[in-house]
């Protein structure tokens, strides 16, 4: 038991977070903003770029920070949706992890409308989500699935496609 005091003082020194790296949530919000910059919507789209977030919103604070920013002449507006029926009115739809079970019905509702769908789950790319962000080796990266993009009438810039880790 000789080392107990030493051990206890170690425990009391406990956890303080002064991480240099960017928190994942803030980085994801910055990515979403960039996806907005590097995507072209049909000319009929109005002057507001609605970024919709469904129910559980893990990055609430960071999202508020980009609310009202200008994106290629449009004003970015964060919209928190309470139901999936309104998803067609969005220009960007961000699906958090909690939405995974509902992805299919959400995509059915969208029915190839010009909405950029972005998810948190690399496994969802094949189910028809356009961009999926995921962590690898302490970096945030993203995959692009071009089939649903083409069907929706959106155009992704070649720069965005070049920076993607994988393009399907």
């Amino acid at each position: 038991m000789r080392f107990m005091p030493w051990l206890l003082s170690g425990l009391l020194l406990a956890p303080l977070c002064h991480a240099d790296p960017v928190p994942e949530g803030k980085m994801k919000v910055a990515f979403l903003y960039n996806f907005g910059l590097l995507t072209e919507w049909p000319a009929s789209t109005g002057s507001t770029l609605r970024l919709c977030v469904l129910s559980q919103d893990p990055f609430a604070e960071s999202m508020n920070d980009i609310d009202g920013q200008e994106v290629n002449g449009r004003k970015l507006q964060i919209v928190r949706l309470s139901s999936t029926t309104e998803v067609k009115a969005c220009q960007i739809l961000y699906l958090g992890e909690a939405e995974t079970p509902r992805v299919k019905s959400i995509l059915n509702t969208l029915n190839d409308a010009p909405v950029l769908t972005v998810s948190d789950d690399a496994n969802l790319a094949k189910s028809g989500i356009m961009i999926s962000m995921f962590m690898t080796n302490r970096r945030l990266v993203f995959n692009v699935n071009t089939n649903p993009v083409k069907r929706s009438g959106l155009t992704l810039s070649s720069r965005l496609l070049r920076l993607a880790k994988n393009v399907d």
Binding site: P21, V22, E97, M135
Partner: peptide, 25 residues
């Protein structure tokens, strides 16, 4: 927390090269 508006002034190329602290889940 640091101001995220600094982050959105950076090009995507640079963001892809930055260390990210994974959100615990």
């Amino acid at each position: 927390a640091s101001n995220p508006s600094n982050l959105i002034t950076l090009p995507l190329e640079q963001l892809l090269d930055m260390d990210v602290a994974p959100a615990s889940k």
